[in-house]
Design a protein around this nucleic acid. Sequence first.
DNA 1: AAGTGGTCTAGACCACCTA
DNA 2: AGGTGGTCTAGACCACTTA
Lengths: 244, 244
Amino acid sequence: MTANTLKRQPLYAQVKQLLMQRMSGGEWQAHDALPSEWELADELGASQGTVRKALSELVDAGLLYRQQGRGTYAAPVPGDWGEASLLTPGLFFERPDELVREFLGMSRLNASEDIAEALQLRRLAPLLRIRQLWRWHGAPVALDDALLPAETFDGMDARWLRNSAGVYATLQQRFGVRVKVVCEQFRAEMLPREEAGLLGVTGMVADVPALCLLRLSADMDGRPLEWRQRYCLTHQLAYTVKHG
Amino acid sequence: MTANTLKRQPLYAQVKQLLMQRMSGGEWQAHDALPSEWELADELGASQGTVRKALSELVDAGLLYRQQGRGTYAAPVPGDWGEASLLTPGLFFERPDELVREFLGMSRLNASEDIAEALQLRRLAPLLRIRQLWRWHGAPVALDDALLPAETFDGMDARWLRNSAGVYATLQQRFGVRVKVVCEQFRAEMLPREEAGLLGVTGMVADVPALCLLRLSADMDGRPLEWRQRYCLTHQLAYTVKHG
DNA sequence: AAGTGGTCTAGACCACCTA
DNA sequence: AGGTGGTCTAGACCACTTA
């Protein structure tokens, strides 16, 4: 508590910031133990209670988890589905089947007006578009476009994306950026032609309703980072979201 | 801290429970000020910090809100849409137009197997079905069925529902029960005939995709209380959920 | 037995609001 | 000036895990 208090910002918030920086720097990998609350308190010149408050907020944010009597650990990076999964309609407590991810490609485009505004970019700002397909027991069930500000993620390599657990995992590993979902929109739409092709809906069947998801994500400080658009086929599996 | 500690349950949790009971009893209406942290601490024989922790959890749960320098207040009951609203697709930061609620009726039925399991009831347990229609600028946009355990809400009166802000508001006012959403499922479906009629989708148009929402809600202790099924027309407005 | 997270206290000060 | 929420500390004890 001695010196560098910039004031205007409570001590626990400074501790939290500092820990987030050290985590971004890769100091602790998933499931690594952090120093104990007392060690951190010593090291940072704060009391155990203050360190504890900072850690608690990081636990709430999903960056850490605790085990009584054991320690505090770095949480694994969430996947591209976050708190959502595909489940049998009506059964909320089923264990979700793991979806298989397929990286389809990365391309560049310019932001539309809506997207530029949502991501707080200028009109026509360059974006990276990352396209992924999700399969369930081999059958395509969802198609993803993640749109990221190209300048923020300059140097993004398609090979990183091909061999990873998803977009969020890559952002964390390669850029030290942890992302959280800000808000989501849902609509029911007839599946557009291009998406129908990629999802393997072809032939005479023609008109299939699809769940259309729009998601806005931000970094831990609230700066918008990602606009995602996802088409889900929900005639077999329902898009399920668990709440706090 | 003197006497009635049942142990096995930390003091702040007991304080929280006690405050929840007093709120259910109607001791404070929406926007009423609670006693100050110090008064509560005195009254309950705990320290200010302990009371503060209990209050903080209730704030997180949405039952209270705080204003620095002023006090702690009872939060208004959330509406049937919770953190969700209908917005123009792609615009996340729009202010939502208020939806107009229309109570369509209350009936009784027996639980299907799925619903009985989700609500932790026996098979064929009696349920109340409360049907509501939501209009936007006069046009129907959503249709709701709320299914409640009939035995828990014995004495429910349709007149209460007609003149209220919704199902959750009625449960709070008449039964002292505060509800929170546990999880939600989304699907895209072709609008079934009966629902199409109630939503005013008629004539030759025929095949309209609808967003189908399934929601499981519980009381503050986690006991399941409500199964809700909602059909939304999303060709104009998207179902928008804001996160933590 | 030692180490860790989890709870609780008493007292102090600060920042903000109302009067 | 007085009241309220918001932060911080030092010290204590408990419950759980590991060795």
